[in-house]
Design a protein around this nucleic acid. Structure first.
Length: 86
DNA sequence: CGTATGACGTGCA
DNA sequence: GTGCACGCCATAC
């Protein structure tokens, strides 16, 4: 089954694979997940499946803005600054 | 199965 | 340059 992992699982895995000090945009993550146009679902999935192992704070918009964060958008920006990603 | 929602992106006024 | 509206994909209910 090619779809043993749903888009959701792929996105979570890709995000969890983001190296430290690096940030990928929703579009990039969606592309790596298998659907470059599903950046919409990426945000939706992360929002419902945020895990401590998933540096969702490293996923930002193409505008260079953070976008949102289940723990507080401010915390996300702060973390990005701490990682020198921003 | 169909509907509603969402942490986006792009285009146009 | 800013603001508004539409469209897109996947998930959850």
């Amino acid at each position: 089954m090619l779809q043993s992992k749903t888009f959701k699982q792929k996105v979570l895995e890709v995000v969890s694979k983001i190296p430290k000090g690096k940030a990928l945009s929703y579009k990039e993550v969606a592309k790596r997940a298998g659907s470059p146009k599903a950046f919409r679902a990426v945000g939706n999935i992360l929002n419902k499946n945020y895990d401590s192992k998933i540096p969702c704070h490293r996923v930002i918009r193409s505008d260079g803005k953070a976008g949102g964060y289940n723990r507080g958008i401010k915390a996300k920006i702060k973390k990005l600054k701490e990682e020198k990603v921003l």
